[in-house]
């Protein structure tokens, strides 16, 4: 019998998608659930995701957004230089920081930076961006396989799990695996409104299933509008196309959103 865990990241205050994902995980009878960070950002009512995470015993690590909100830093540490991206990043950050309770900020501050576990004999390493840097973007189309091998060797892992970019992908190299589990917070720039999480199954082999999560995105869009969040954010939720945080997106991933 394979050992299975469910892993997601980038909730971005999308508590409706989180609810839907947790229900799906429960239905599949998977008990071990992990979150790779970025609990807040982008979505409405930042405090709503926290009780869900606690009730379901989701084990979290800290993302750059959590680190920033937890320590009340001046920005989200995404490092954009494009003024269009920065404009929206600031709105989202100010809203989330102001709306996250003191207790929840303290909780974010205390999250571990990484998590190591053994899944059916394999060494799994969970991180937010990359094993070496919380806010490093690792995209499928800009990460060579020999670089992944280097990370796996230096960080002594057979399976590396990360998020942060917003688009899922996986690669198998030299008997090892890298998995970007995607995000629950916003769709992945492909014109569909669903979001994604990952199920890792390990027996003699390692397999990864990416699970699409449908949720009431109309309701989320209405709640975002009620909170006066930018129309650009709402458009992404409604259409599945990204409107912000585009600077860091490489050609291949970007082309899906026809430039």
């Amino acid at each position: 019998m394979a050992e299975r865990i469910a892993v997601f990241g980038g909730i971005y205050s999308n508590y409706l998608a989180l609810q839907a994902a947790l229900a799906d995980v429960q239905l599949r009878g998977i008990g071990d659930v992990y979150c790779l960070g970025d609990v807040g950002a982008f979505g409405p009512q930042p405090n709503r995701v926290f009780p869900l995470l606690r009730e379901h015993g989701v084990r979290c690590i800290q993302g750059n957004y959590d680190n920033s909100i937890g320590h009340e830093l001046p920005d989200c540490q995404c490092g954009y230089t494009d003024p269009r991206d920065n404009y929206f990043a600031r709105i989202s950050y100010a809203y989330t920081l102001a709306g996250t309770s003191r207790d929840n900020r303290a909780w974010l501050r205390e999250l571990p930076l990484e998590r190591r576990l053994t899944v059916a004999g394999r060494r799994a390493l969970m991180c937010h961006g990359s094993p070496r840097r919380m806010n490093e973007f690792l995209w499928d189309s800009t990460t060579s396989s020999h670089f992944l091998r280097h990370l796996a060797e230096v960080h002594e892992a057979d399976i590396i799990l990360a998020t942060h970019t917003g688009i899922k992908w996986q690669r198998h190299f030299d008997g090892k695996h890298f998995v970007n589990v995607g995000v629950l917070g916003r769709p992945e720039n492909d014109g569909t409104t669903n979001v994604w999480y990952a199920i890792l199954s390990v027996d003699t082999d390692v397999s990864v299933e990416f699970v699409p999560v449908a949720y009431d995105h109309d309701r989320l869009a209405h709640e975002m509008a009620a909170e006066r969040l930018p129309d650009e954010f709402i458009e992404t939720i409604r259409t599945g196309w990204w409107t912000t945080c585009l600077e860091v997106l490489p050609s291949k991933e970007r082309r899906r959103g026809h430039n």
């Binding site: 540490q77 490092g79 806010n135 973007f137 490489p250």
Partner: peptide, 13 residues
């Protein structure tokens, strides 16, 4: 910083 790469090199967080 980050003069030459396509995307900004992110600093310590």
């Amino acid at each position: 910083g980050t003069l030459c790469a396509n995307i900004p090199t992110t600093g310590d967080s």
